[in-house]
């Protein structure tokens, strides 16, 4: 059953990716990239990574779609026809894809207990969390307590990014200029 769900999800992922490549209407592309994120979130759930799936569904399928729509509203609705050599882009995609697939052949099988993720600090966290932190969700314990400093840095990154967008797009320059222009008109 799980293999069937995997095949269906991956099949739709590939179909969505092909549709995104072929379409020139950016509105449809933005919507399809939201669908792509939602399908990946489904795959993460199948792989028992619920926290990651949650983030992917909320950020990838939700917020990014809205932000991309906002960006599209400010620019163009249609993608311009490509000026680069298509064959060259295709060759790069095939080479990078082949290299990535070659890289996965060395990876331990999915869920294998010998995988590095289950060998080093993982078991230690699972063993220590009930004794030291006492919260059932080990992911939260690692994120907020053992690695609290990392998470503080992540929040600072989000803070900085937010401030940067506000400064870039929400500046108060325009009203000030119109006020000055109005004064100038009055003076004249």
């Amino acid at each position: 059953m799980e293999a069937f769900i995997d095949i269906v999800l991956f099949g739709f992922l590939i179909l969505t990716a092909i549709a995104i490549m072929r379409l020139r209407n950016l509105f449809a592309v933005v919507m399809l990239s939201g669908v792509f994120s939602l399908l990946s979130a489904g795959l993460f759930v199948v792989m028992d990574a619920v926290d990651v799936a949650f983030t992917e569904a909320a950020v990838g399928a939700g917020i990014s779609t809205v932000l991309m729509l906002g960006t599209m509203a400010m620019t163009s609705r249609e993608e311009k026809p490509p000026v680069h050599n298509r064959l060259f882009s295709f060759a790069i995609a095939v080479i990078v894809g082949a290299a990535l697939i070659y890289g996965t052949t060395d990876m331990p099988p999915f869920g294998s207990p010998d995988a590095p993720a289950h060998q080093h600090v993982g078991p230690d966290y699972i063993e220590r969390t009930p004794k030291e932190i006492g919260v059932p969700n080990v992911v939260t314990a690692v994120l907020a307590s053992y690695r609290g400093f990392d998470t503080l840095g992540e929040v600072a990154v989000i803070f900085t990014a937010g401030i940067a967008v506000i400064v870039l797009l929400h500046g108060r320059t325009r009203p000030a200029r119109t006020a000055r222009a109005r004064k100038k008109e009055k003076d004249v």
Binding site: V66, L67, G70, G162, V165, L169
Partner: peptide
């Protein structure tokens, strides 16, 4: 805030 910045 980002939504405000884009949508405004």
């Amino acid at each position: 805030s980002i939504f405000f910045a884009f949508a405004s």
